[in-house]
Simulated scan of single mutants.
Amino acid sequence: MVLAPCGWILELTSTVAPAWRTINNIPGESSDLVLQQGLWDICKTFTSSRDIQCNQQDTQYFSAQIIQIARGLMLSSLILNLIAIGVASAGVRCWTDKPQWTVAGVGGLLIFISGVLTIIPVAWYTHIMTSIFSTSTDVRVGYCLVLGFIGGIMEVLGGLVMSFGLCRCCSRRNRNERPRTFAVKPTRNPSPPHRAPTVSSVSSVSSVSSVPYYSKQSEMDFTRAKRQQDSRPANSTAYKARPYDTDL
């Protein structure tokens, strides 16, 4: 997603700028004259000054087959790259958890094709640059070819990486994707009602553990029960009260 727009900007500069090749040492002209030729325009520049004269006519240069083909391929690459960026943006959807791998893969494939459409005319022009009609034999590579190569390679790499989404979609193994699991609260059984320990339970606890059963509440209950027992009549032999569970 970063390489594709950057490559598009470099392609646009390479297509519009008139600097696919430069011609120096033109016979019959001043030695500081440099002729810059592109796909759509030709400009005259001077090394001793900053004067630039564009819209120069050269019928034999513009009538070359490579110029017509390069125009069509570069324009097709620019348009296709814009469409591919839109498709890839809709497929990636960085604002969601799960991207659409099929749409993103198709967008990456279109970006890859756009890069190839750029590299073909640039490489072809570089190969036959010296054979195209020129008024001098001192022909040099312009900066537009360099920008075109860099932009095409960036698009090819970016589109190739993004097109792996098609492979991941077919194999159903998406990177960093885990099935969503919804947290379900476990159903807890209601706790049984609280019961005071009985004599048998206390005796069993005391027999198992060496730590005596003690709590602040039990001490208060025991004191209260003792006070109630002291307030009873003296004839305690005739009355036998059952001990409370809290007394223990």
Rank of each mutant, 00 (worst) to 15 (best):
N189T: 14
I85K: 00
A234M: 13
V199I: 12
G72W: 10
K185D: 04
C43M: 04
R21F: 07
S30G: 11
K226G: 06
S203G: 13
L109E: 12
S77F: 07
P243L: 08
N176M: 08
I111V: 14
G158R: 02
A234Q: 13
I9Y: 07
I69T: 07
C6F: 07
L35A: 03
C43N: 09
V139M: 06
S236A: 15
V92W: 01
C144T: 10
V184F: 06
Q100S: 15
V2K: 13
G151K: 03
L145C: 14
G115F: 00
D32R: 00
V92S: 01
T246C: 12
A238T: 12
G72E: 05
A183Q: 11
A183G: 11
G151C: 04
M1A: 15
T130F: 09
R188V: 15
S114Y: 04
Y61F: 15
R21L: 11
Q36V: 08
P212W: 05
P243R: 02
T187D: 08
W95Y: 15
P27N: 10
Q56C: 04
V205I: 12
P190Y: 15
L78C: 12
D32M: 02
T135G: 06
C54W: 02
T187W: 03
F182Q: 09
M1H: 10
T237K: 12
V211K: 02
T181F: 04
S134I: 00
V202N: 03
L10T: 02
F62V: 04
P243E: 00
L10F: 09
